[in-house]
Design a protein around this nucleic acid. Structure first.
Lengths: 252, 252
DNA sequence: GGCGAGCTTTGATTCAAATCAATAAGAATC
DNA sequence: GATTCTTATTGATTTGAATCAAAGCTCGCC
């Protein structure tokens, strides 16, 4: 049953890994949605020269932890990463899920210390971009500087969307909105928008959306009963996209 | 009854306004917490040359609105500003309150369109910093670039703190946390940390914290009954700082 | 290929905060 | 200085999601 979709994802990952030694920003299939976006050929080469590619993270392995010295931001090349903060009383708050082509770690810039932790939800390859080098290069390449400002700004905007979701929307709306967000991000990578695998657990989903596992599970069941969704554990098929949209009750 | 505190604030505002023609980043009393932070004397002059100071906003007047073209970021010089987003169904979500020395508008960078609206909660003076000029200058002044990256990163971190607050904390904890945040921001400007005036309405507080007005009002009453707070409409006196901290149940 | 820990689902009950409702207190307007 | 409009408080009731409880699944690991 765990078929098509996971194969798609695994394939993407495998390609990224198998050819690690020859991957560069110029030939990376994600460069149109990742940091190199809007850069010229020669600029991409310069950017590429500061990017470091190390061996993939295994599921559960940390990319960085809260309080670690901040050195780099990271671009996801394959797999997916969960970012979270630990509250004073030891609980976790998931602050984001990061998919291929997305940048994480920017919250560490302000204090030279990571403000969150990042852990692989499945085998994941990342590009490490040392921030000192990126800053220097940005001063020389207006397009890069501009794009990096934009990326940080987008992170702010997205956090504000989440704030709004948590503050104003019901449990059902939150879950539907997350599904739409994930669907859109698969679509951006030319993968199916209606049939995908969730890399995170129900606990993570609930944590991210400010809900308990039980509530998330019930909502999936209910949506399945309404026939807008087919749920097989982490495998999701959206049967009625318009239905999900109207459940989300947001245009985003 | 509306005495000391509001006078303090009004005085600050008045000074900023009365001397508008001669205010510059070099002599601005806020320069140690605002954008010029960590800049050299001559660099400050350069920054100053791109900053525009216009006449103060009146209460209720907008600085920018969602969907407006993005041109500039803004530093609050006196008074206070509320930022909010409008949801598809027309409701508001307050995303932040901005006090003197704080920068707002950075969410507009990503799409060249403001992602939120900003409105004065009281008479407020702001410095407009055209983003195109700021970008250019940043490329020439590593410290400015670095500091602006830090400011954006701090905005991300603060949004994540709010996400955590909304997702994990009770109504009482949220209100206490907001009071502590405001108190700390007054303290940073060398004003009283225990006795201040809230520039925003109960509706705004509730909206920001994902609560109804009634809940906010009840919590203020309860805290007053517990004698950790003295509340006189918008005038707040923290009688037991440790008490508020323990109610907030967060270290921040 | 089977055992066990950790996920996921489903049901019953509780509870914190929303909603509904009314009054009171300020602020703005004439 | 009265009148209206907005903002804040307080109380009664409802409700959505949390909590408590108990199976049922999966998947990794021997």
């Amino acid at each position: 049953m765990t078929t098509l979709i996971s194969k798609q994802a695994q394939e993407e990952g495998a390609k990224a890994c198998a050819h690690d030694f020859q991957v560069n920003c110029g030939n990376c299939r994600l460069n149109s949605i990742c940091l190199p976006l809007a850069l010229e050929r020669e600029d991409i080469q310069q950017l590429d020269s500061i990017v470091q590619r190390s061996k993939p993270l295994q599921k559960g392995q940390h990319l960085y932890r809260e309080e670690d010295d901040f050195q780099s931001v990271y671009a996801v090349r394959s797999g997916s990463i969960k970012a979270y903060r630990t509250t004073d009383d030891g609980r976790e708050q998931v602050t984001g899920f990061y998919f291929p082509g997305e940048i994480l770690g920017m919250d560490g810039i302000s204090n030279n210390t990571h403000a969150s932790s990042a852990v692989a939800l499945e085998t994941a390859a990342v590009c490490e971009i040392p921030f000192a080098s990126l800053s220097k290069l940005s001063a020389l390449m207006p397009n890069l500087q501009g794009h990096f400002f934009q990326l940080m700004s987008r992170e702010i905007t997205e956090d504000q969307i989440l704030i709004t979701l948590l503050s104003k929307n019901s449990a059902d709306e939150r879950v539907a909105a997350l599904l739409l967000s994930i669907s859109a991000r698969y679509a951006r990578r030319k993968l199916s928008a209606t049939h995908f695998r969730l890399p995170m657990s129900r606990v993570d989903i609930g944590n991210y959306l400010g809900l308990t596992v039980e509530t998330v599970s019930r909502i999936f069941s209910r949506m399945q009963k309404m026939e807008v969704l087919r749920v097989d554990n982490k495998e999701i098929e959206i049967l009625d996209m318009q239905g999900v949209r109207s459940l989300a009750n947001i245009s985003a």
